[in-house]
Amino acid sequence: MQVRSGRGGVHADAGFASEQVKRLTQVLPKARAEIIAATEAVIQEAVLAEMKATPIAELKDFGASVGPLQSVGFRTVADLSGRSFGSLLNYRGSAT
């Protein structure tokens, strides 16, 4: 015997309910993820602003030799943003 409901298979109803419940259970995690992403954006923005406002000379406190960096025109910490090890090697004097 196959169990059926009046308007079609109860299994179909169960399957549809399962999909909808799954979608619903994502609502709050998605909202939390939005908060985390927005927080990360605020932090990134603040860090970037701090980097732009900080002279490259202050990297001395973090163990860098800043003379070579200054000599090739780096002024603020933000100027180092996105630079790789390889790209820095291209600047004469940065690797001694």
């Binding site: 603040a46 980097m51 990297l59 860098a64 030799s65 790789s84 090890f85």
Partner: peptide
């Protein structure tokens, strides 16, 4: 002193700056 040290210092600076971000709109 090497480019490696500069990259490392940059990373440490970022971490430090991140730790001091005040989340207060």
């Amino acid at each position: 002193m090497t480019a490696e040290a500069a990259i490392r210092a940059f990373g440490l600076f970022q971490e430090s700056a991140r730790a001091h971000v005040r989340l207060l709109p």
